[in-house]
Design a protein around this nucleic acid. Sequence first.
RNA 1: GCCGGGGUGGCGGAAUGGCAGACGCAGCGAGCUUAAACCUCGCGGCCGCGAGGCGUGUGGGUUCGAAUCCCACCCCCGGCACCA
Length: 830
Amino acid sequence: MTTDTPSEATTDFGDRYDPSTIEPKWRARWEADGLYRTPDHVEGKENRYQLTMLPYPSGDLHVGHWFAMTPSDALARYYRMRGYNVMFPMGFDAFGLPAENAAFKGNAHPRDWTDANVAHMRDQLKAMGAMFDWSREMNSSRPDYYRWTQWFFLQLYTRGLAERKKALVNWCPKDNTVLANEQVVGGRCERCDSLVEQRELEQWFLKITDYADELLDNEALDWPEHVKLMQRNWIGRSEGAQFSMRIQGHDDLELSVFTTRPDTSFGMTFAVLAPEHPLVEQITTAEQRAAVEEFVDRIKRSTEIERLSTEGDAGKRGVFTGAYAINPFNEQPVPIYLADYVLMSYGTGAIMAVPGQDQRDWDFAKAYDLPILRTVQPPADFEGDAYTGDGPAINSDWLDGLLKEQSIGRAITWLEERGIGERRVNYRMRDWLISRQRYWGAPIPMVYCDTCGIQPVPEDQLPVVLPYDVEFRPTGESPLSLSEDFVGTTCPVCDEPARRETDTMDTFMCSSWYFMRYADPGDDGAAISFDAAQAWLPIDQYTGGSEHAVMHLLYARFFYKVARDMGIVPGDEPFTRYYSQGQILGPDGRRMSKSRGNVVPPDDQVAKWGADTFRAYLMFLGPWDQGGPYDVDGIVGVSRWLNRLWNVATVEPSFVDAPGSDEARAIRRATHQTIARVTTDIEAKAFNTIVAALMELTNTLHRAREAAKDEGQSVDRAAWDEALDSLLLLMAPLCPHVSEELWERRGHEYSIHLQSWPESDTALMVEDTVEIPVQVNGKVRDRVSVAPDADEATVRAAAEALPRWSEHLGGKEPFRVIYVPGRLLNVVVK
RNA sequence: GCCGGGGUGGCGGAAUGGCAGACGCAGCGAGCUUAAACCUCGCGGCCGCGAGGCGUGUGGGUUCGAAUCCCACCCCCGGCACCA
């Protein structure tokens, strides 16, 4: 038994908390022991796949990586302590533009640049002390990975889900290259400031729209509602009708339009084509030709971004073609216009314009002095322009009087009976353009043969390896096109000379299946084996940033559904649960950026405070899904807590055996209340309140020890040991190093991370007495101390015995008394 | 414009129908120290000497009781932005 009295000044113990010593020590031990290696199967344990999004190897870890990954690590560790066989892997999304830009600037070869960054960032990631299983590490730029990305492409091609077609892309005439939409700023190239043009090029597309309806069906997923909503909006399903109209003087042509409101067709007063519509050439009259050509030319020169934006443009831009279409509903001719508010890429690229019921059509009609006819009766108090709500049809012949839904049905039936139209569904989501005219990506495994046309590279010839020696010179095509060795090949069908595809794949393809590879990292016979897929998929908990709410999470769902149809993965969805953490900002509350000078390097925080302190502080800042500014001064509070914890755990009070004492029971009550709170909070990912609860228990133990010392008393050993051991176990997921160190110092068996999560005992949590506030008309006037399970009569009697009882009531009689057991007593007087 | 999230002390936040401000930062006071730092203890929404009054963006409502539920409005953040 320890009888030493702690020295007077608490700083005067030889052994201080020194994270810079204990953290590297334990990480080395864990690595040497393979503590975080996850086998595919463990007897008697259920598998659980916990995943946090992988980083792009930009060169340096960011506070945001710590903010995203360390709470996810805490969850993985928690479930491990709960008895699961938890896989928590890590890797690198290593293809991408920044590596290639470095090469264009002459700095380094993309591969060398990437490999150096990966090596550096792997070390930075290891400093987190997370339970990453590095034996499963993946890197999307390595041939043994992108071989299977190419394989997926071939599977998509075989299934008719990959096709080559023409598309309008952003083109910079000075850099002589295609630009991503994100690289076009205000219609200009972000690098050289040239005006960006639209060019029509042949590109590879994946037909994600084939899965639109299934992707839309995300209601049942355990994901944040706002993310599911964003995906539904992105997919943008619209139901309506498509029908065709005759064009005056062109018996051989017809104009097809899509509408969600066929019930308003009698109100069509004009029709509009997208400027790129193929009919423009044929229907434009001689008088209008000059004006139309001038308009089309102007639109061509503007970017899609400008076209889709209403800013800076008061009205809608358009021109009359001189031609007329016949409205099949009333046989009336209506003028055909071109306008930039109609998009070639949606529906048929043409609309019937009903200004009475559509605001955009209303605006155009006003600007070009076209007639407006209401075909839905607005309410008497309606004051707007176009009326888009429901109401009885008017001016619509045989539809008059019908409400919207019924009227739509009748109109569609009418169109179908005459064979000029049908029910139709449209989506705003478009097929996924995956071609990139870039070097640093997975080559698209296709071959062009003059005789046999487009041919896939046979599976047994994968990977199509990215050559190292290429010239980085802007040409408008992938640098791969400059490599004769790469381009020149033979046709897999006829064996004659042929050319390789030189475009590479969008890096989102690499990240659409990486989570499968972790389950089976070394497999050179398959992307993922059946056994590995059965063992690990789908993912139990995925966490990451909401910037990926649409693109990555939608693409990955698409890939998974295709993989399911191929029979290689179980279930319909890759991510059973998804949680989106918030964004950490600079101390000034703005996005961290080098140009603003508000970047907080995580390495500096770790060097100054230690990884455990940094981890716990990031979790303590606020709710995980909220994020917020990083306050460099606040971390000292967490540092003080861990120092105090160290002191409490290493400097013992004098002990007695007094399990029944009030003090012992108070310690046990605090212990079990904390176990219960932390368990609830970690399930809810409420890390900030977990840290608060752990601080409170630490403070309770500290006070108990000091109070005993002041009064020359001893502390019950069993209660103390239970409290400290529980505290260390509860904080192990958050602060893996210091909990391990103190666990060992308390004489326990290595490792704390192999222990079971503590269980709370409700009976030990009950308070002896509770303070019940006594309210009069809802205002607290006094309080009484009673047993927690006291009945109303007891509490009321205690209240009536209060010296100021009649003063509180103001001399009146209670009109009504409300008692909430164990909570409060409210006396109502009138 | 549409959709989503949010507004609580000097600051980050806690409390989701029952004692507003847990936990922490910054601040103030005291102890320890030659001194400072560290550490420890205490104070801490606003007004008021006090009893008490007022307080969770604003205004209304429901309720014995509202930060929490309902209605209207204001502001901030994020996403989408002519999809017929």
